[in-house]
C-alpha cells in the first residue's frame, strides 16, 4: 500500500517539491474519558490509541456504533480535547482546529447555514480564511460545478435533497483548501444510489486534490470500497484491534471492485471480525474497575 502512495505522488512530482504536501497526522496515546451519568466513575471512551496518517492516504476507521470512532475523529479535528495524548502534524503538537484539517459532519443538513444560499454557504469556506474576493467567488462557482450543482447557486439548503446538501458541504470544505479531510459517516443518511455516486466522486476528489482522507463508517463494504487502509475499532473502551491494508488498485469500480476476489475475501474477514466484536459483552467499563 505504501508503495502505491509513493508511486502516485512520484507521478505528480510532489515528493520533490513538498510545498503542497499534506502533513503527516499522528495520533499518539490519545485517550478520552467522559464523566459518567449513573456511575460515579468516569467512562473510558477511548483507550490509548496510536495512529499515523501518511500524506495522501485514504484511511477508514471502522467499528460498531458506540466504539468511540466519532470521538476519535473529533479529537483529530480539534473539536474535542483528548483526556490524554497528543495530536501532531508533521511532528508539531497541535490543539484546537487547524487550517490544514477540515471536519465534515454527519448531519450535513444541520451544518449548512440555512440563511445562506448554496453559493454563500460555499463562500463561507473562504470568508473564514479571510480570502473572499471576486476570484475566490469564481473558485466557489467552479467547485459547485465540480460537485455537480451548477444552476443551484441561488438555492437555499432546504430546497435541496440530502445528497445535494452533502455535496454543498463537500464544496464548502474543498474551497478552504484543506490538506486533510476528516469525514464522519458522511453518506449514512443518503439513499443507496446516491451513496455510490458520492463515493465515486469522493475518490475522484481525493486524487484530484491530493488529500489525506480519514473516513469514519460502520459500513465495512463502504470501508473496503473507498480506502487504502482500514482501522478496526472495538468498543468499551474504544481501541484499535486491527489494521488492514486493502489490496485493490485504483480507480475502483462499483461493479467490478465489489465483485473482485480481494474485495470478497476482505469482506468475509471483516464481517467475521466485526461480528465477533459485537458478541463480546461490553458495558461501559469504569476507569480503575478490575
Amino acid at each position: 500500500m505504501m508503495n502505491w502512495i509513493r508511486e502516485r505522488r512520484a507521478g505528480y512530482g510532489l515528493h520533490a517539491v513538498g510545498v503542497d504536501e499534506a502533513p503527516t497526522l499522528r495520533v499518539e496515546q490519545v485517550t478520552k474519558q467522559y464523566a459518567g451519568h449513573t456511575a460515579k466513575a468516569p467512562v473510558q471512551v477511548l483507550a490509548p490509541v496510536d495512529l499515523t496518517l501518511e500524506p495522501g492516504s485514504f484511511t477508514t476507521i471502522l467499528g460498531p456504533s458506540g466504539c468511540g470512532k466519532s470521538t476519535l475523529l473529533q479529537i483529530m479535528a480539534g473539536l474535542v480535547a483528548p483526556t490524554d495524548g497528543t495530536i501532531s502534524l508533521d511532528g508539531r503538537a497541535v490543539q484546537g482546529p487547524q487550517p490544514e484539517l477540515l471536519y465534515l459532519f454527519q448531519q450535513y443538513s444541520l451544518s449548512l447555514f440555512p440563511w445562506r444560499t448554496v453559493l454563500q454557504n460555499v463562500a463561507f469556506g473562504v470568508e473564514s480564511r479571510g480570502r473572499r474576493s471576486a476570484e475566490t467567488l469564481d473558485e466557489c462557482r467552479s467547485l459547485i460545478e465540480r460537485v455537480g450543482l451548477k444552476g443551484y447557486e441561488g438555492h437555499y439548503p432546504w430546497q435541496l435533497s440530502g445528497g445535494m446538501q452533502q455535496r454543498v458541504a463537500i464544496a464548502r470544505a474543498l474551497v478552504a483548501r484543506p490538506k486533510i479531510l476528516l469525514m464522519d459517516e458522511p453518506f449514512s443518511a443518503v439513499d443507496a444510489l446516491t451513496r455510490e455516486e458520492l463515493q465515486d466522486e469522493l475518490l475522484g476528489i481525493w486524487q484530484e486534490y491530493d488529500l489525506t482522507i480519514v473516513f469514519v463508517t460502520h459500513d465495512f463494504e463502504e470501508a473496503i470500497y473507498l480506502s487504502q487502509e482500514i482501522v478496526v475499532l472495538k468498543a468499551h473502551p474504544g481501541a484499535i484491534v486491527e489494521k488492514r491494508a486493502v489490496p485493490i488498485a485504483y480507480p475502483r469500480n462499483q461493479l467490478h471492485t465489489r465483485a473482485s476476489e480481494a474485495y470478497l475475501a476482505l469482506r468475509h474477514d471483516l464481517h467475521e471480525l466485526i461480528f465477533s466484536l459485537k458478541k463480546k459483552p461490553g458495558a461501559g467499563v469504569p476507569v480503575g474497575a478490575p
Binding site: 477540515l102 459532519f105 463561507f124
Partner: peptide, 23 residues
C-alpha cells in the same frame, strides 16, 4: 453543529457570534 462547523473553519469567538449566532 453550526457553531462547530464555523470553528472547524477556524473562526474565533467574535466571528462565530457575528457570522453564525446572530443570523
Amino acid at each position: 453543529i453550526q457553531i462547530d462547523t464555523a470553528r472547524t473553519f477556524g473562526l474565533g469567538n467574535a466571528a462565530v457570534l457575528r457570522k453564525v449566532v446572530v443570523p
